[in-house]
Design a protein around this nucleic acid. Structure first.
Ligand SMILES: [Zn+2]
Ligand SMILES: [Zn+2]
Ligand SMILES: [Zn+2]
Ligand SMILES: [Zn+2]
Lengths: 169, 169
DNA sequence: CATGTTATGTTATAATATAACATTATCGAC
DNA sequence: GTCGATAATGTTATATTATAACATAACATG
């Protein structure tokens, strides 16, 4: 099942296998929007993108420092704020981590599947869920603006490891 | 629309109008489960229950101290851990607050409607959403165990205040 | 009451995030 | 190019949220 969304990035191929494409797209998006895709912002996005799991702000900070860059907490938080505003990065509230967005071209609501074992996280784009949530909220007199949906559980690999008999079938 | 779930606590009546009932139920639940509903735990639950908005841990801490109790962060975090284990309290990851559960009798998945203006938060019990999430996760090869669903937006009152013309209709 | 267990007190510290202000880079007007 | 405005980054300090570690107290059980 290929991605049906706009843009050149696939839903299924992990972002860290398409880093260059992703960074190029980010740069192009920022240019279109007259926003500056500075070296710092590129570095942070690149680190997030290269990671197999969502990263914490201080992990990013350490990586920046390791690359020889002078950096303090505001350095990374500011870059993260920018990247979130541009829709290039999402924040996971359930574990205070940040990950690259699979579809930065347009605003969207997403569902995150967070493996509690290995931390791998997938972003699903399921407007159905958000519509159902909006409707239920409206029935309760509530005007929904944004939904944070973070599902924790086990990814395929970790489920097979945890319950090896399941892998036999 | 009255609550269709088990227990004596209604979905629609705010918990702070049923504090005594709620505390009595909590005590009874703990007794059934052979868990100790200590004075500290009662106090914390009572404070959470009396609040109109979900409270942060340090707000609770200050309230405990104001009541003359000797307390430090672990005091309140331990009580919160216990109350969460017993299903009496939920934690909202999106704003690091804690609120009393509307249906502590059985484990359940819930949707939280968090007003970004006034902080008022309602707990909806909508198994439909969780089932849909589980199914979508399964289709992606993911075994869902828990879903944190936190919707932010405007409650009835704040929506009317923000856009007064809407209230006219 | 002796004993093991659970809960709480207490001190210190970890982890996450922001405030405030100085400095530097960038951009458009001239 | 120079200038002034704006945006970005550097830097220091601090706020906020949460846990580790160990001591003491309360409770249950025989
Ligand atoms: Zn996304
Ligand atoms: Zn996994
Ligand atoms: Zn609940
Ligand atoms: Zn409100």
């Amino acid at each position: 099942m290929r991605c049906r969304h706009a843009g050149s990035i696939s839903c299924v191929t992990p972002l860290y296998e398409q880093q260059d494409d992703f960074l190029a797209m980010a740069e192009s998006l920022c240019r279109q929007r007259q926003q500056r895709f500075t070296e710092l912002r590129r570095q942070v996005l690149s680190l997030i993108c290269a990671a197999e799991q969502p990263l914490g702000a201080y992990a990013l900070l350490d990586m920046l420092k390791a690359k020889g860059r002078s950096a303090a907490p505001p350095t990374v938080y500011r870059a993260l704020d920018f990247l979130q505003q541009q829709g290039l990065v999402h924040r996971l509230a359930s574990n205070n981590t940040y990950l690259a967005c699979a579809h930065p071209q347009q605003p969207h609501e997403a569902v995150f599947l967070v493996c509690r074992q290995c931390g791998n996280t997938r972003e699903l784009h399921t407007d159905g869920i958000y519509r159902a949530l909006s409707r239920q909220a409206r029935d309760a007199g509530f005007l929904a603006e944004h939904a944070a949906v973070e599902v924790s559980g086990l990814c395929t690999r970790c489920r097979d490891i945890t319950t090896p008999e399941a892998a036999e079938k």
